[in-house]
Amino acid sequence: MRNIFLFIRRYFNFLVFIILQVLCIFLIVQYSRYHQAMFGHLANGITGKINKQYDNVEYYFQLKKTNDSLMLANERLYNKLAADFQLPDSSTREMIDTLRIDSLLQYRRYQYIGAKVVANAVTTQSNFVVLSTSMADSIHVGMGIVDPNRGVVGAVTDVSGDFVVVMSLLHKDSHLSGKLLKTGETGTVSWDGKMPNVVTLTGIPKSTVVQKGDSVITSGFSTIFPKGLLLGRVIEVVKEISTNNVKIQLQTAVNFYNLEYAYAIRNYQQPAIDKLLEKAKNSSR
């Protein structure tokens, strides 16, 4: 017993060192797996407030770019106004694409919830965007986030108080389903951790004709993004030697360097889909 105490006293520093290192590695491993681990909630509350104060100042320097981007978004919306269109013939049968049969009311599938970006990173391997909104109550983990021009930003990993933490497209664990607009092939969009604003589309067969500048959109296979949101544009096509696929480098639609506003996409059919998937999972067991 005495020897044990002597040992502890002699190597006390080393033991503390080992314990702290093991604690750090435990945090790294555990946090990568469960994104809203014990640490997240507490830390997000505090850092969120500090980030917001900083953003109040930094926001003024970005006003010009923000205005330009909002102007473009507005322009697009004005062009979609119903008043700008005229029906060619009043006798054509009007059809409303709806899931509810006994009513003429249209069904809302997606709702956009605006939020201000208060913190954003592009330099690390695991980049997160932090949003601040008073509507955080209606934002849930797993919801998709887009920028004012509906380019994909990422998916929500944690919500606490008024703050929402978003795993950006530039995160090593981020995998989204993407689709080539022209030919329709779907693949996976992920980030290799090197260049900010450049992501990779994999799983596209070599037979596909892909050109520089082709658009890649969300496939709509996942429930978090509606179909057709712009993910990025092709800048380079690399043929993989060992497989039958090509690796396509994309310039992201969103410029992650000057993100100021973002919208969370709420899918009203999500609970119904989740329920069905749950049921399918249970019955297959």
Partner: peptide, 14 residues
């Protein structure tokens, strides 16, 4: 905690 991934910098600092 500002980078939302605990452990990395703490390990290096220790």
């Amino acid at each position: 905690s500002f980078r939302h991934q605990p452990g990395f910098h703490a390990a290096a600092c220790v």
